[in-house]
Design a protein around this nucleic acid. Structure first.
Length: 287
DNA sequence: TACACGTGGGA
DNA sequence: TTCCCAAGTGT
């Protein structure tokens, strides 16, 4: 895999994203990475701006009730991420003097930060040399090297080894390379209707050279949503997010007809720490 | 390992 | 309209 063409392409075509500017901090980058998990850039942008205005450093967020993080999360989806980001801020203040750690293992130990995000923050915020393997990169590698339209359902050791083997030796260059490949996957080598005509490495893409054969692996699991507990949880939490304070039970009851499912969903929200059942019978976002 | 976990937009 | 997908993590 040629490194140069992709670095050159990135230099010319990268998007101007606020967490990529020179004044972006490790904290602002960390927040962006959590928000971007399974969530499109356009939806993250306004929420990230608001978070950075309110909580420019971990200490500011750590002082707030976790419910404020959930409220400010808005409709980004997967609101447990908001809770984990709040827990992240708390841990960073308590264990790292308020500074986002630059060590990969320490990042990995923070709540809500897994293999991808730890590598991404270490790479993007601290310019370290790590294989940053997200869905974009996995797709690019699958097409270029394996000739497959899509990567395997679950990440393999081989994919990680390949990504590591492609890393430029120089750390800062490796960091730019990591974001460049991701960007290529996000803008050109997209899941549907890839823009192969604009690809800087089309001549080395095995999938393209093979005539772009259609995916023939096992069916990729579609995610149902309507009628699920997830949708029910979303409805219930939306009520609390949009209310100025605690709400009475009947206010929650009206958003979902199936009482068995509704109670189950509410129980799991409480178990997750997203909803706080008050002593007076009302419900609120957590303190 | 497989599944749960939100939401909205494009094809 | 329905399906598929978007910078994953935790259990």
């Amino acid at each position: 895999m040629p490194t140069r063409p992709i670095l050159d392409w990135y230099a010319e075509h990268q998007r101007d994203l606020p967490w990529r500017t020179p004044d972006a901090t490790p904290w602002s980058i960390l927040v962006s990475e959590i928000m971007l998990q399974q969530t499109p850039v356009v939806r993250v942008l306004p929420v990230w701006e608001e978070w950075m205005r309110r909580w420019p450093a971990p200490e500011a967020l750590a002082k707030e009730p976790s419910g404020e993080a959930v409220r400010a999360w808005g409709r980004l989806g997967y609101p447990r991420r908001a809770l984990r980001l709040h827990a992240c801020a708390t841990a960073i203040v308590a264990e790292h003097g308020g500074e986002v750690p630059d060590d990969h293992a320490e990042l990995l130990a923070l709540p809500g930060i897994g293999a991808y995000t730890a590598a991404a923050v270490a790479s993007f915020a601290f310019r370290q040399r790590h294989a940053v393997l997200d869905t974009n990169v996995r797709r690019v590698l699958a097409r270029m090297r394996s000739g497959e339209e899509y990567p395997p359902k679950a990440q393999t050791v081989a994919e990680l080894r390949l990504a590591e083997s492609l890393l430029p030796d120089d750390a800062p260059t490796a960091a730019t390379w990591a974001v460049a490949v991701m960007e290529l996957g996000a803008l050109i080598c997209t899941a549907r209707a890839p823009r192969c005509a604009d690809c800087p490495v089309i001549s080395q893409c095995r999938w393209y050279l093979d005539g772009k054969p259609a995916y023939d692996g096992p069916a990729r699991k579609g995610q149902s949503y309507a009628g699920t507990d997830r949708q029910c949880r979303g409805r219930l939490l939306a009520v609390l997010r949009d209310a100025p304070g605690p709400v009475e039970k009947p206010v929650l009851d009206v958003v979902w007809a199936d009482s068995v499912q509704r109670e189950r969903a509410l129980d799991t929200l409480i178990a997750d720490g997203l909803v706080d059942p008050l002593d007076d019978g009302r419900y609120a976002l957590p303190r």
